[in-house]
Amino acid sequence: MALTAVDAGEVAVRAVPTGTARPGSDKTARDLAVRGLAKRFGAAEVLKGVDLDITAGCSTALIGANGSGKSTLLRCCLRLLEPSQGSVALLGQEITALRGAPLRRLRARVGFVFQKHNLVPRLSALTNVLHGAQARHGGPRCWYQGLAPRTLRDEAMHCLERVGLADQAGKRADRLSGGQSQRVAIARALMQRPQMVFADEPVASLDPAAGEEVMKLFSDLMREKNVTLFFTSHHLRHALDYADHLVALRGGRKVIDGASSDHDMAALKAIYT
């Protein structure tokens, strides 16, 4: 895929086969290091002392049955939920120690794609993508595309082009299909110029065809930009096809942590029983 001047100065483009660690990434560097993470909601302990390392540039799938703690783990890693116990070193910084502007600056380097897209419904696709630059550019410039400078509008438009939605730039987010909405959410994450992207069941709300299409696009874009990807999924085939590494949770505890090539479908299905 051709890149425009907007990509100049960003990460190098690397196309690599699915299921292998990407070349160029430092295999010793960890973008995420979780130690003894616990999360309690009242008496219910959802996460029970989870340890986890995610290598820079790798794609990691987090699987597990409903209620196993996948979404909670993702949210705790970005402090969208406050961990009850443990430490989370994200991109080399202990996120549990950060507050205010330093926390926002760290979050700015990490994209988050939600299952339900979480776009602002009444705003255009372009404005929603532009929101991705809010941490880089304070003030009202990134609140609405009409207020944004030309360079930011160009960059947002380019991100929409990358997800194949340039022709929908002016359309309201609540008038897009589910697949299109998720692509806009991915474009918003790209607009952050992230080093790492979290995705919480990014295709769970889409039909199988749209889900496959969006997952492939998502994975390809992350690999192309050498972005570390950490996603949850109930699609075991997606986990095996798009992740270099697999982590599985059961009842809030980690039960699998290894290369995806070391696991087969039958072994993964066992964690749901």
Binding site: R104, R109, V110, G111, F114, L119, H131, Q134
Partner: peptide, 20 residues
């Protein structure tokens, strides 16, 4: 949801209020 998404990407409180 949209407010959480903007908080997750590092938007300020005023950014979340005015954008979402």
């Amino acid at each position: 949801g949209p407010q959480e998404a903007l908080s997750a990407l590092g938007a300020s409180r005023s950014g979340v209020i005015c954008s979402a």
